[in-house]
């Protein structure tokens, strides 16, 4: 009997011992977290300096200066676009615009090929289309390249129920494909047939430079979500032109910054407003009030005679 009660006591003891130990553990853990937090505050939220290796490497800064830095400070440039949150911020001070000179286009489709390649798009999904247009029966037909117009009053952004498509401070309209619910209201709202949808699981190559999704690269593409031309923000960030602009052999596309008042088609850089003034620039369907960032120069004094391609679809007067 006494043996039993002793046993019970022991059990009780060990149980309370366990409790004590647990309490101590929680206290220690709490203190560690608090201490860590305090340390972080005290150290002004700076990571501790890595030890210098002593090996110096020469690098060029964006403004062209050659500087020497320690090798430990060098991180390989991340080709992936910015994170989903960062992608919502535009590049500061910029207001991107495009001017498409219809008098230079001969439907070479190099722009489209380059776009398809760099965004890993299959044949049926075209973010950039070149339309055969004819304004009326008497007018002569012409080719009209049409990317996303990145409207300043975008109807697609207005109707999105979850803020998956958004307008940035630099004028770009992008899509967060990890938030999109696939309701396709934006496709119905866009008057320019710009948006495409991933009806099934997109087939995409494995050899991409980056496998992490970013709204700035629109890749990897996501099933059941909407996508469209994004003006290549990953290129813009590096100070480069979008792929369609650099691929065009005829200098159809001018791209640039309205704040700087300059646009460049790869060959020449000109004043944006002067170009519109000189060549009577206009915006497609101005009457809708969507205020596109893409301007067109009329198809007059053409560089090439209009040569019909095999019919891609029924003709329609716009």
């Amino acid at each position: 009997m006494s043996q039993k009660s002793e046993d019970l006591e022991k059990k009780d003891d060990s149980a309370s011992g366990r409790r004590k130990f647990l309490k101590l553990g929680i206290l220690t853990a709490g203190l560690t977290i608090a201490g860590g937090g305090l340390q972080k505050v005290l150290s002004d939220e700076k990571d501790p300096e890595p030890k210098e290796s002593g090996t110096k490497i020469k690098v060029m800064t964006p403004d062209g200066k050659l500087v020497e830095v320690d090798s430990t400070h060098i991180k390989e440039h991340d080709h992936c676009g910015a994170s989903r949150d960062e992608s919502r911020q535009g590049i500061p001070g910029k207001k991107y615009v495009m001017v498409i000179d219809l008098s230079r286009c001969k439907n070479a489709l190099k722009c489209q090929k380059s776009c398809q390649k760099h965004h890993f798009l299959p044949e049926q999904d075209k973010w950039l289309k070149v339309y055969k247009m004819q304004d009326n029966e008497e007018a002569s037909p012409y080719w009209m390249p049409k990317p996303c117009l990145h409207c300043d009053k975008p109807p697609c952004v207005k109707v999105c129920p979850v803020d998956a498509t958004f307008k940035r401070s630099d004028g770009l309209v992008l899509i967060d494909n990890e938030r999109c619910i696939g309701c396709r209201f934006c496709m119905a709202a866009c008057p320019y047939s710009t948006r495409t949808f991933n009806w099934d699981e997109p087939k995409q190559p494995d050899n991409r430079a980056c496998n992490e999704y970013s709204p700035e690269t629109s890749n990897p593409r996501k099933k059941g979500t909407v996508e469209k031309c994004d003006f290549c923000p990953d290129m813009l960030k590096l100070g480069k032109l979008p792929h369609c602009v650099t691929a065009c052999p005829n200098g159809v596309y001018y791209f640039g910054d309205a704040n700087e008042d300059s646009v460049c088609n790869g060959d020449e850089t000109v004043r944006f407003r002067q170009l519109l003034k000189d060549k009577a620039g206009y915006r497609y369907m101005e009457a809708l009030g969507t205020e596109p960032s893409v301007y067109y120069l009329p198809a007059s004094n053409r560089l090439f005679p209009f040569k019909d391609a095999e019919p891609e679809g029924e003709e329609k007067h716009s």
Partner: peptide
């Protein structure tokens, strides 16, 4: 009809009142 029915909660997490879909819901 939704492409991503698995994300239906986004309607409540990120709902934007200017969208007629949100009014409809």
């Amino acid at each position: 009809d939704m492409g991503r029915p698995d994300r239906i909660l986004n309607m409540f997490l990120h709902g934007r009142i200017q969208s007629p879909i949100v009014w409809d819901v």
